[in-house]
């Protein structure tokens, strides 16, 4: 199940970005994105899991570039979310390979998918809420908010890394 979800996520992520690029008249870039997706699929099929982090980062950068190039924000969000799913599931797939109990694997898959669904659901909710709600801020308050955001992310990362 996890294996097929990984393939689906890669295809969906690359497909969404390529579709957006074609719609924005960047056909050659769309082909490049599709090729990147194909490379990811081949690497996964060949069990070269260590490259999934690199390809995840590449797809995020491509999503940013797509947004800058005028691709629909929803499609770029899809690119980020599907690449996140593919990256996460690749690691989870490796973990499943370490157990030889199919019963445990099934239970772990269900719990993992629920957690991912929660993350994706909240992300979509937050994104669409952000798209609907428009707040006008002065430059100073925007800068303070940005600094606050960066500090918050830094604190979160520090907390997580201290647990490692």
């Amino acid at each position: 199940m996890t294996r097929y979800l990984i393939y689906t996520s890669i295809i969906a992520g690359a497909g969404a970005l390529a579709f957006g690029l074609v719609a924005a008249m960047h056909v050659s870039s769309a082909v490049t994105v599709l090729l990147a997706g194909l490379v990811w699929i081949v690497l996964f099929a060949r069990r070269l899991f260590r490259y999934s982090g690199l390809l995840f980062a590449v797809f995020n950068v491509i999503s940013l570039a797509c947004l800058w190039a005028g691709v629909s924000p929803v499609l770029t969000l899809a690119g980020v979310i599907f690449s996140l799913l593919a990256w996460d599931l690749t690691r989870f797939f490796q973990r499943l390979q370490m157990t030889n109990s199919t019963q445990d694997a099934g239970k772990a898959e269900r719990a993992h998918f629920m957690r991912l669904a929660l993350v994706v659901g909240l992300s979509l909710l937050g994104y669409f809420a952000a798209a609907r709600i428009h707040v006008t801020l002065t430059f100073g308050s925007a800068a303070v908010l940005a600094l606050l955001g960066v500090w918050g992310i830094s604190a979160l990362v520090y907390r997580l890394r201290s647990h490692e």
């Binding site: 940013l64 969000l77 997580l160």
Partner: peptide, 29 residues
């Protein structure tokens, strides 16, 4: 990277792209 790119281009949609990643980190905590 995403947040700084969004701030640099003053593009709110770009900043919002970081939301799934932030929520993923929070879920880990």
């Amino acid at each position: 990277l995403i947040v700084l790119a969004g701030l640099a281009t003053l593009n709110g949609a770009m900043v919002a792209l970081a939301l799934p990643l932030v929520l993923y980190l929070l879920a880990g905590l």
